[in-house]
Simulated scan of single mutants.
Amino acid sequence: MSAADPRREWDERAGVRTCPRRRLGDELDAGQLFFPPALVPYGDHPRVRALPAPHRRALFARHLYHYLDFTTQFETRVVNRVTERIAGGRSGLDVRTATRLDAYRIYVDEGYHSLCSLDVIDQLSRASGIAPAPYDFAPFLARLDAVGEGALPDAGRLAQLLQVVVFETLITAILNDVPKDPRVLTLVRDTVRDHARDEGRHHVFFAGLFREVWGQQPAALRGRIARCLPGLIRSSLLPDLRPVRASLAAAGLGPADVAAVVADSYPADRVDQGIRTASRHAVRLFEETGVLDVPGGREAFSTAELLR
């Protein structure tokens, strides 16, 4: 939030205060894309290209649906469980009232992003006839929570705060690139652009909050935090292949073809490079605040393949 006047910044720029409801036009019949093909790792695989055109179109639609469904769940079940505590004064942190007010603003933003994401899924599935596949967020959340439970078993709320600090300081190609692709449905581009604008303010808030929180921690706990953060980064960014496999199977590929497409599209070196790219701003924040300088810190980040 703006240091000068955070309330005015939010009142005048937050999507929930300024953006109209984004509605689907007549672009489906014109052949506009659901999602940029370059951002779908398996989109150009020969076995996917060989599918009938309607099956490929449905595959890209389900990729979009999964991204939006993940957004609805992450914002409400991960980000907002932390912002609600900060806003309510129950986080265990020594923060100012201004910080609590900003946390309430972010809480509203994230609920609004979830509403918009589900609205887009509903509009597109009704108009296209391509139904979204069920998505179980619980395994992803369990994997994410397990990192904090292992590294900070006696500081669960701090671990959950670190989850959000990590995620809100990541920079993904989706928020940057989807709005720029004129081939993509305007409804999708506008919704992602609205989200990206809000996330810029959230990035500033959580980066600043981490600096405050880090400064309040005793030396012993700093070491454990430093060793926890790389795992949180990787857990946040590792691709969830369950919906990918289900979507490929729904497109008509058999088990052997699904396994081949996934193996070819998500090789370990490419996944690691994607994680390093998306986490570069988060890693820079942690480097600037001295996280990598505590005993074991730099080694933990290096072992996690996060340093260039």
Results as ranks from 00 to 15, higher is better:
residue 106 I to D: 08
residue 106 I to L: 15
residue 109 D to M: 04
residue 111 G to F: 03
residue 112 Y to M: 07
residue 112 Y to C: 04
residue 114 S to V: 03
residue 114 S to M: 05
residue 115 L to K: 10
residue 118 L to K: 11
residue 118 L to M: 12
residue 119 D to W: 06
residue 121 I to R: 03
residue 121 I to H: 05
residue 122 D to L: 11
residue 123 Q to P: 04
residue 123 Q to I: 01
residue 126 R to F: 04
residue 126 R to I: 06
residue 130 I to T: 06
residue 130 I to V: 13
residue 132 P to K: 02
residue 133 A to Y: 03
residue 139 P to A: 02
residue 140 F to D: 11
residue 140 F to K: 14
residue 142 A to D: 15
residue 143 R to V: 10
residue 147 V to K: 12
residue 150 G to K: 10
residue 152 L to T: 11
residue 153 P to K: 09
residue 153 P to V: 07
residue 155 A to Y: 13
residue 159 A to D: 09
residue 164 V to Q: 06
residue 164 V to D: 09
residue 165 V to W: 12
residue 166 V to H: 08
residue 166 V to C: 14
residue 168 E to W: 05
residue 171 I to Q: 14
residue 171 I to E: 14
residue 172 T to F: 04
residue 172 T to S: 10
residue 176 N to E: 15
residue 178 V to Y: 04
residue 180 K to P: 06
residue 180 K to V: 10
residue 183 R to G: 07
residue 186 T to Y: 10
residue 186 T to C: 09
residue 187 L to C: 01
residue 188 V to R: 02
residue 188 V to P: 01
residue 189 R to L: 00
residue 190 D to S: 12
residue 191 T to Y: 07
residue 194 D to T: 14
residue 196 A to T: 08
residue 197 R to T: 13
residue 197 R to P: 01
residue 198 D to K: 07
residue 199 E to W: 00
residue 201 R to I: 04
residue 205 F to G: 03
residue 206 F to A: 03
residue 206 F to L: 07
residue 208 G to K: 00
residue 209 L to K: 00
residue 212 E to P: 06
residue 213 V to C: 05
residue 214 W to D: 06
residue 217 Q to P: 07
residue 218 P to S: 13
residue 221 L to G: 05
residue 222 R to M: 04
residue 223 G to W: 05
residue 223 G to D: 07
residue 226 A to M: 02
